[in-house]
Design a protein around this nucleic acid. Structure first.
Length: 271
DNA sequence: TACCAGGTAAAAA
DNA sequence: TTTTTACATGGT
C-alpha cells in the first residue's frame, strides 16, 4: 500500500467523475473503483484511501505523476475564501468541496485530445479517442500510454480517418505529430504568450489553447469563454450575463470557477 | 429520422 | 472585413 501525501481537502470520487461520465478512456482508465494510467511504461493504480490517495506502485515517478494527474497543484483554500464572497459560487462550491480538476499530464496528449473534442459531443470524442489510443498507444497492464507524437507521425491521414477523425482533424493531428513543437517550453511563458504560440499551429484555436492553459498548465486565470458547456453553465447560474464579463468577476480564480460551474451543472447543484 | 454536440479554417459575400 | 460552410461520430 502506497499512501501518497496529498493536500487536503480532496474528494477522490468527485474529482474523478470526469472519467466515468463521457465514455471509456483507455489512457485514464476507470476500473475497479480506481484510476489506472501508464507512467514510464508501467501501470499505475490510483485509488481513494482514508487520509489520502493510494498509489501502486509508489515511487518518485508515480508519485509525481499522480500528483499532477489529480490536480494537487491547485490551491483550494484561497479559492474557497473567494467563493464565499461571490453569490453564485457561494451556492455552487460548498457541495463540491474537495473537487480538484484532473490534469492532462502531457502537452501533446492534451492538444490531440482537444482536437478530437472539437465541435462534436464528448461522447463521440471519447469513442474516437479511445480507438486512437488502442491503435497507437502502448499497453501497460490494463491501461494504455497515450500515443506519442513519434508514433502518430508514422500513421497516415487515411489511418486516422478510419478511426473516425474528420479529414481536417486528421491533418491537424498529423501536423502536430510531425512538427517540432517544443511544447514543454510553453510552461515558462505567460498565459497570453502560450495562447499566441499555440494558435499559430493549424487546428488550434482559442478554445483549444484555453483548455490547454486550464487542463495542462493549471493556470489559475484560464477561462475557456468560447466553450459551449461553460456557456451553458454560466447561463444556468448567472442568467444571460456575458461569459467574458463573468470571467472578469471571477478573477483570479477563473480556472477553478469554470470547473466548479461545470461540475455544478452536471451534479444539479442548486436545483 | 433528424438534430445537436465542451471548434476551426477556408470559402464566399 | 464579416458571414457562411464543411466536417464525421454518437446519443437522443
Amino acid at each position: 500500500m502506497g499512501l501518497l501525501n496529498f493536500p487536503e481537502p480532496y474528494d477522490f470520487d468527485l474529482s474523478t467523475a470526469r472519467y466515468r461520465r463521457w465514455g471509456r478512456d483507455p489512457a485514464n482508465l476507470w476500473e475497479d473503483d480506481a484510476l489506472w494510467r501508464a507512467v514510464d511504461g508501467r501501470e499505475m493504480r490510483v485509488a481513494a484511501l482514508d487520509g489520502g490517495v493510494d498509489v501502486e506502485p509508489l515511487d518518485a515517478a508515480t508519485g509525481a505523476a499522480a500528483r499532477k494527474l489529480l490536480g494537487a497543484e491547485f490551491e483550494l483554500d484561497p479559492f474557497y475564501a473567494f467563493a464565499a464572497t461571490e453569490p453564485v459560487l457561494a451556492r455552487v462550491v460548498p457541495p463540491l468541496r474537495g473537487l480538484r480538476p484532473p490534469l492532462a499530464p502531457d502537452p501533446f496528449e492534451s492538444l490531440v485530445t482537444s482536437i478530437t473534442a472539437q465541435q462534436v459531443s464528448l461522447h463521440a470524442a471519447f469513442a474516437i479517442r479511445a480507438r486512437l489510443i488502442e491503435s497507437y498507444g502502448v499497453r501497460a497492464g490494463r491501461v494504455y500510454a497515450f500515443p506519442t507524437a513519434e508514433r502518430l507521425a508514422l500513421s497516415s491521414e487515411e489511418d486516422l480517418v478510419a478511426l473516425g477523425f474528420s479529414r481536417r482533424k486528421a491533418e491537424y493531428t498529423l501536423g502536430l505529430a510531425r512538427a517540432d513543437l517544443g511544447l514543454t517550453e510553453l510552461a515558462a511563458l505567460e498565459d497570453e504568450a502560450v495562447k499566441a504560440r499555440l494558435v499559430e499551429l493549424r487546428g488550434i484555436g482559442e478554445w483549444t489553447a484555453d483548455w490547454f492553459l486550464a487542463r495542462h498548465l493549471a493556470r489559475p486565470r484560464a477561462w475557456p469563454a468560447g466553450d459551449l458547456a461553460l456557456r451553458k453553465a454560466v447561463a444556468h447560474f448567472y442568467g444571460d450575463a456575458d461569459v467574458r464579463a463573468v470571467g472578469e468577476r471571477l478573477d483570479p480564480f477563473q480556472n477553478l470557477s469554470a470547473h466548479y460551474l461545470l461540475a455544478g451543472l452536471y451534479a444539479g447543484v442548486g436545483s
